[in-house]
Simulated assay, not measured.
Amino acid sequence: MSLPLLFKVLLTRKVVTILLLLQLAITLALLLNSVLLAQQTHQQLNQPTGLDLEETLLVQIKPTTPQLRAYPLLEDLLERQLNALRNIPGVVAAAYSNQGMLLQGGNNGNVYNVDDEERSNTSSVPIYFVSADYFKVLGVDVLQGRLPQQSSLFTKESFPSVVLTQSLAEHLFPEQSAVGRQLNRGSVSAVISDFYGQRNGENVMYNSIQVTRPFSVDWGYTLLLRTSPGQTSAVRQQLTTVLQQVEPNIEIFHIRSLAEQQQQLYRNEYGLATLLTILSALMLVVTMISSYSSTHFQVLKRQQEIGIKRALGASKRLIFIELLSEGWLCTLIGTLLGIGCALLLNHGLSQVISLPSLNWWLPLLTGAILLFSVTLAIWYPATIATRVSPATATKAL
């Protein structure tokens, strides 16, 4: 069947064709962006973090009285809490930090090599003030230098030594050892393996850590625990009771494993990907029903026409292919319109969440899914058309 004739057939039912094209375009736009978002979310959730997500617990706490939120009572509170946590069976190590990891944003600042400030100045680097066991909790590897063994005093005149993650050290001191070099925040004592800090940072693996005593925690602080394999759940159940026994004047905001923290970090993308997937599936079902209904109606309406073609020698296969071709042409046009709609939807979503641009193969994939679905929907009505008897169809002529 010629292409101009197929266009002519589609134009004979303008309203139905326009509605079907609109439905196909919207379906493809939703399907394409849901696949893109699902792919990105899967990659984000499976990217290396440098952390033991299952056996590390994070507790976010804030003292409820002003006195406990400042030195020296704060330091005493932290020591009492950490000692109690270390005595829980199954706890390998416990430490405090001014903030957790796997965050959207948080306490950060610029870090630079004082001998090369213009090139090395790096903004939005997470700044951690921690206890000495922090590195044991994370299970990071020491790549250069030695880790600080005890907390140092942080004053305007004296900065504690700095521990850098590998990626940040290589950026600040390319092809050089970072140990002993001077930063705007202190001298470098060690370089450790990378771990995921803040999503909004300049690089998720850039982190600056200082072992120092806390002076105030107006916004709260984080306790981190490393548990023995298989003991995470048992330890978690005891945390609230143990911490409140140590000090009742605290508010526990949440207790999470780092795996849950990672899920929380990408909850917007995950939720939106799920929503778009559900909408895409529903639209795909509706499109299949519409394609089926439209083709079935056309078969009933064109029985005489089909019967005449059969009487003039058209084979069942030719009638079958003709009806499928009408559906394929309509799907192709709808796909082209849908790519335009998908670009608009992609641009709109990118204003709300981080979303990559469309690549060349996704329209092909989603177009193939749409074509397969439409073909499946119109298969049975097209099969019915091949059963039209030439003699029965021409009796009314």
Rank of each mutant, 00 (worst) to 15 (best):
Q231A: 13
Y112S: 08
L279A: 15
P72W: 09
V15D: 10
K62F: 07
E79M: 12
A29Y: 06
A93S: 15
N121R: 14
Q198K: 15
L358H: 11
L22W: 08
C341T: 14
Q47W: 05
T122H: 02
L343I: 04
H296S: 15
I250K: 03
Q262M: 13
P248R: 06
R199A: 13
P4D: 13
H254N: 13
L73A: 10
T41Y: 01
L365T: 08
K14I: 10
F129K: 04
G271W: 05
H347Y: 10
E260I: 10
G90S: 04
T41L: 02
K309Y: 10
C330M: 14
L82Q: 11
V217E: 05
R199F: 12
P214C: 06
R213G: 05
R267H: 15
I127L: 15
T241G: 12
A259I: 01
F195G: 02
V125P: 02
Q44K: 10
E54W: 03
L258N: 00
I369W: 03
Q39A: 11
W328N: 00
A391C: 03
Q44S: 12
G367Y: 04
Q237G: 05
L243T: 01
Y380F: 11
R226A: 12
H171K: 12
K156S: 07
T331G: 03
R256G: 03
